[in-house]
Write a protein that binds this DNA or RNA. Structure first.
Length: 858
RNA sequence: GCCUGGGUGGCGGAACUGGUAGACGCAAGGGACUUAAAAUCCCUCGGUCCUUGCGACUGUGAGGGUUCGAUUCCCUCCCCAGGUACCA
């Protein structure tokens, strides 16, 4: 019998489906385990990133099930988003048709991979029965002040008359028409995530199951800093300018004031002054500069004098006020006190505009002087020129200076966060409508709860220009005010798609529950939090932070009980492949190249560097071909074997072949022994074994140990698979016992069964089939995970490495329970060691018990 | 730019908390089987050098440091990747 992957896989997939193997219900008898992979955007086809993500998840789901957990493993579709709208613009297909066809295609691809999803729980976020509840949450948030409207900036293409996403802006130009993109200010909806900044930050300390780096990134993103808000009185009026600083220790050195170009104060101060026009031009120019570049250390610092002065509150010094390109309007107060001697950006600015510098922190090693400084001194030191604080260490005076400012009524200690509120307004069609009605008399009034959902109207025109398609549908826009009954218009902004993905894991717990608030408390409480969440590292900040925020927000609305949505997080790396480029035809898909030759023109193809698989570089592998050729089991095994999950995975055709060969190798050894072991009981682990059999027994106990640890503790499936490969290699190596040697055959059977069971979560189809062939009854899906005997798995002999001056010179083999003194003695008297120690002084002997001995000689 | 990771043979990777660098697989080379090929099974496989040995030296992006001992810890630098708030 030959290994026929397709046949086997379809057979078992059908059986699992018929027997509802993966359907789950709440069960108070069993410990629950909620395993979740980030649901996909239905772009059309699954890609290798999905295959990898979902294979990792499936292995854990199946493993946990074998460990006796009640496993929830759902799948759904993050089905709102820009690509659907772009397809509508380019090909005239309605976004819902495009999306649903993609879902159909991708669902069948996922089913073909044999993933153990409970498909009864499938959800699609673009369906009204899903976004209805999101709209309800929006209304509740609005009522609590957590959703609000304010002016925000967007990328605007003046030619297309439309808002562009950041990725639609290429080098400052519109991706469709190459017009120069400008900033436009629109009234937009925001979620007040900053209300939760402190809790989100604190929460990072309650998530030991998250990768440290993700927590670090989130903490930095929230960016808490302790500082001081200081008031600088205007020189010629009663007004004040407020600044936020973390460096109040340098206040005595503040010699001028900087304001963000976009700050309303900038134009107000310059109004009616000779420099008004210059200032306006400057503001317009800065607005076009890239935000990222503006704050870069290397970017040219620029500014313009506003014709006004303020006073330093502690020195009384008259400080000129400038607008500057590197000051951000939405961090702190949008105004910065400039201390050129101790801030590099201020230093450069002062040099450029010839502004005064005063040293207030003295470098203890190399005294500073204003005239000779070539850069700002940003390290610690002693305060000078600082009134009563002169002579103190600068860091130790921070607190006292803040208190001094408070006492003179010119400042207060504050905490500042870098985190900004979440702008959720999108001027697009394919998203959940914001359930608000704008009334000329009553303002923004939420849609009545009983009128939800606000359904996205089907009829819309997709032109890619002229703004949001929704705004042009009169029947949608025109409505009446729920408060006064007068004529009103609907909000035509839709919600950011990150909103849907902020609570989909809640919905999976009770997917069919259709009563307020859309989530059934008892079920949500049973399943949440997600025990293991798996997804790409690219979501480390935004998606994960928004989902955490939403969880806390829904908790405060009484909908959820948990504080954090995801107990454990596994972030997987990207799938990469080298690019191929033909001199005339540009980037080529792998199937357009054969043996390094472009199939279109016969030219030699240049192999480029390895990059993340993307459609534009055409360095993609369609998993379908892989499945057709080798089967789902090989595809699954390759993804896992190639590298550990958190690392990037580099594509290799050869590696796939190797995984396929390994599965065949298992298949063959089972077939070879089949007639001998079919009717034999597997070894019951009693009785004494000798020679090869003893070695084999030890090996499979060790293999169970290794695979269990690798899956349970580290999700390192690559090394788990290696361990099973070693066991299979041993099976091939041992002398085949005769057909009537029942005891030996029973040990072999046990070893073979171990291989099959250990690999079941990884390659479920072929292992089910093999189990069925040798066992003939029951299926593996219900089996429990094998156990090992630590005593049998223990090595009896260990190797002690002997180093002389840190270099390996010899090795000795000793009994595992040999006492340390004997080991040392044997090491010192070792023949090869003596070659290196003879006639030398032994200065020191380092002994690492049961491992290594290092003899230091002089 | 900023934040966060990563860099180990020809290649993917292994090495749990500072203790034998290169498990396992791929590629390559050799052998067995075969009329032959494929498939399969077995062996070799970081580099340099020589006196070819149970050999010496060298080797984990580069350069320093700590240590009896560093892929692992510290400092400086180079390269690559992810995120950077409207891609998801």
């Amino acid at each position: 019998m030959k290994y026929a992957p397709r046949e086997i896989e379809l057979k078992w997939q059908k059986l699992w489906e018929e027997q509802n193997t993966f359907t789950v219900k709440e069960d108070s008898e069993k410990e629950k385990y909620y395993l979740l992979e980030m649901f996909p955007y239905p772009s059309g086809k699954i890609h290798m990133g999905h295959v990898r993500n979902y294979t990792i998840g499936d292995v854990i789901a199946r493993y946990k099930k074998m460990r006796g957990f009640n496993v929830l493993h759902p799948m759904g579709w993050d089905s709102f988003g820009m690509p659907a709208e772009n397809a509508a613009i380019e090909h005239g297909i309605h976004p819902s048709k495009w999306t649903n066809e993609n879902i159909e295609a991708m669902r069948s691809q996922l089913k073909r991979m044999g993933f153990s999803y409970d498909w009864d729980r499938e959800i699609s976020t673009c369906e009204p029965q899903y976004y209805k509840w999101e709209q309800l949450f929006f209304i509740w948030m609005y009522q609590k002040g957590l959703a609000y409207k304010k002016r925000g900036t967007v990328n605007w293409c003046p030619h297309c008359h439309t808002v562009l996403a950041n990725e639609q802006v290429e080098a400052g130009l519109c991706w469709r028409c190459q017009s120069e993109v400008i900033e436009k200010h629109l009234d937009q909806w925001f979620f007040r995530i900053t209300d939760y900044a402190e809790e989100l930050l604190e929460g990072c300390n309650t998530l030991p199951g998250w990768p440290e780096r993700v927590l670090t990134m989130q903490k930095n993103w929230i960016g808490k800093s302790y500082g001081c808000e200081i008031e600088f009185p205007m020189a010629d009026s009663k007004d004040v300018i407020k600044v936020f600083t973390t460096r109040q220790d340098t206040i005595y050195g503040a010699t001028f004031m900087l304001i963000a170009a976009e700050h309303p104060l900038t134009t107000r101060l310059a109004e009616g002054k000779p420099q008004e026009k210059v200032v306006r031009d400057f503001v317009e120019r800065v607005k076009k500069q890239d935000r990222m570049m503006r704050t870069s250390d290397y970017y040219e610092k620029e500014g313009v004098f506003l014709g006004a002065h303020c006073l330093n509150p502690v020195t009384g010094r008259k400080m000129p006020i400038f607008a500057a390109n590197f000051v951000l309007a939405d961090y702190g107060t949008g105004c910065v006190m400039a201390v050129p001697t101790h801030d590099q950006r201020d230093f450069e600015f002062a040099d450029k505009y010839n502004l005064p510098k005063i040293v207030v922190i003295q470098n203890p090693e190399n005294p500073l002087s204003e005239e000779s400084m070539t850069e700002a001194y940003v390290d610690e030191g002693l305060l000078v020129n600082s009134g009563p604080f002169t002579g103190r260490k600068n860091l130790q005076a921070l607190e006292d200076i803040a208190e001094h400012l408070e006492s003179i009524g010119r400042g207060r200690k504050t905490v500042e966060y870098r985190l900004r509120d979440w702008g959720i307004s999108r001027q697009r069609y394919w998203g959940a409508p914001i359930p608000i009605i704008n009334c000329g008399l009553c303002g923004s009034i939420p849609v009545k709860e009983e009128d939800l959902p606000v359904v996205l109207p089907k009829e819309a025109e997709f032109k890619g220009e002229g703004g949001s398609p929704l705004a042009q549908i009169e029947s949608f826009v025109k409505t009446i005010c729920p408060k006064c009954g007068g004529p009103a218009t609907r909000e035509t902004d839709t919600m950011d798609t990150f909103v849907e993905s902020s609570w989909y894991f809640d919905k999976f717990c009770s997917p069919h529950h259709n009563q307020k608030p859309g989530l059934e408390k008892s079920k949500v409480d049973y399943w949440l939090p997600v025990d293991q969440y798996i997804g790409g590292i690219e979501h480390a900040i935004l998606h994960l932070l928004y989902a955490r925020f939403f969880t806390k927000m829904l908790r405060d609305l009484g909908v959820l009980t948990v504080n954090e949505p995801f107990t454990n997080l596994l972030t997987q790396g990207m799938v990469c492949k080298e690019t191929m480029k033909c001199p005339t035809h540009g980037y080529l898909f792998p199937h357009e190249v054969k043996e390094g030759i472009c199939l279109q023109c016969g030219a030699t193809v240049a192999v480029g560097k390895t990059e993340k698989m993307s459609k534009s570089l055409k360095n993609v592998i369609d998993p379908t071909h892989l499945i057709d050729r080798y089967g789902a089991d090989t595809a699954r095994m390759f993804c896992l074997f190639a590298s550990p999950p958190e690392r990037d995975l580099e594509w290799s055709d050869m590696g796939v072949e190797g995984s396929f060969r390994f599965i065949n190798r298992i298949w063959r050894i089972v077939m070879e022994y089949l007639s001998d072991i079919r009717r034999i009981e597997s070894f019951n682990e009693t009785g004494h074994l000798e020679g090869d059999l003893k070695m084999l027994q030890k090996k499979y106990h060790q293999t169970i140990r290794k695979v269990t640890i690798d899956i349970e503790e580290r999700f390192h499936f690559n090394t788990a698979i290696s361990a099973v490969m070693e066991l299979v290699n041993v099976l091939y190596q041992i002398q085949r016992p005769s057909g009537d040697d029942v005891k030996s055959l029973s040990v072999i059977r046990k070893a073979i069964e171990t291989v099959i069971i250990l690999l079941f979560p990884i390659v479920p189809h072929v292992t089910e089939e093999l189990w069925d062939i040798i066992d003939g009854e029951g299926n593996l899906s219900g089996k429990s995970w094998p156990v090992y005997d630590p005593e049998i798995a223990r090595e009896e002999k260990i190797t002690i490495v002997i180093q002389v001056k840190g270099k390996v010179r010899s090795k000795i083999e000793v009994d595992a329970d040999e006492d340390d003194d004997t080991i040392k003695e044997r090491a010192l008297s070792d023949e090869r060691v003596r070659l290196y120690t003879e006639n030398k002084n032994i200065k020191k002997i380092v002994y690492v018990p049961k491992k290594l001995i290092n003899i230091v000689v002089t």
